[in-house]
Design a protein around this nucleic acid. Structure first.
Lengths: 153, 153
DNA sequence: TTCAATTCCGACGTAGTTACTCGGGATTCC
DNA sequence: GGAATCCCGAGTAACTACGTCGGAATTGAA
């Protein structure tokens, strides 16, 4: 029931970009330093996020990454899905082929399906109802100045 | 964000025992056949569940496993915790030592902590408010006779 | 009393995943 | 032209998930 470091670091990086939204591109090196994660590793994650259209990049000197959209339009669930795949406790909920044991092919007969579906919905509810803007506002409410906020995990 | 087969098979097995609660011990072999999981593997899971006090066992001929308590007193969360460990998206929520990045040692300064905590609470809310009795009742409501219910995933 | 059924236990194996690292090419600004 | 930066594919070491295996201990029944 854990998210991996991909999701964790990815959200940290996106939060960092949200805090500094509107100030032009931020180099990977800076994000990695502020969030205390491996630069090379984070680069891989940013690659995924860029391909998914959540961030845009600029190459060369003065280049870097920035959010592709306003923080209020980026949900945490979007980030997690890109980096971790579908938000689901069990793969069989996503496919119709049924890998969740006997009778999983006939969802109407699978009692446990309802349980896992509820779990899935409750997770998605939290992650899709929180945007980067919410987090940015939380940071501000904590009276943590922007200059420090970049260091928050 | 997935549960592993330990949790999945474990819940399936406990559900099976709930359906057949009050009829004496059920041999591992029977559970494994009904749920279509490896007998040897399931044995390991039952070992954990027994040590945690969720099931009781009887050895020898006519032996097997049964729930240690009435199905309404066994929550899905109890089962998952035994087989998967704490229900949490991030280990740092469980410890006070702080492994969630900079400032995680000072939770009041960690903006993301609130997000992960919400996610954790929503997962626990579902898993701790569903008991084996709820699932048993679901099965009955589905008009699936007990004799078939044992086959449900 | 013997025998078959069953749980109990510890160890082993192995395929896949995770969490990175690395080297170099392409692009952009000054 | 050169420094800064992103872009890309490959490699790798450790860990985890998902089992397997062989046999000892216990129990009920014939």
């Amino acid at each position: 029931m854990r998210i991996s470091t991909r999701g964790e670091y990815g959200v940290r990086a996106m939060f960092d970009l949200a805090i500094h939204y509107g100030k032009g591109p931020i180099p990977l090196r800076v994000i990695a330093e502020r969030q205390v994660v491996s630069e090379h590793y984070l680069e891989q994650l940013m690659r995924s996020l860029r391909q998914a259209g959540l961030v845009v990049s600029r190459r060369g000197a003065q280049g870097g990454y920035e959010l592709a959209d306003h923080p209020e339009n980026i949900r945490i669930g979007d980030i997690i899905r890109v980096l971790e795949g579908p938000i689901t406790p069990l793969d069989c909920l996503e496919s119709t082929t049924g890998t969740g044991g006997p009778y999983c092919e006939q969802p109407e007969l699978c009692v446990l399906r309802g349980l896992w579906r509820s779990l899935q919905e409750s997770m998605e509810q939290v992650l899709d109802n929180t945007t980067l803007e919410d987090l940015r506002r939380d940071a501000a409410a904590m009276k943590v100045a922007e200059s420090y906020a970049g260091n928050l995990s």
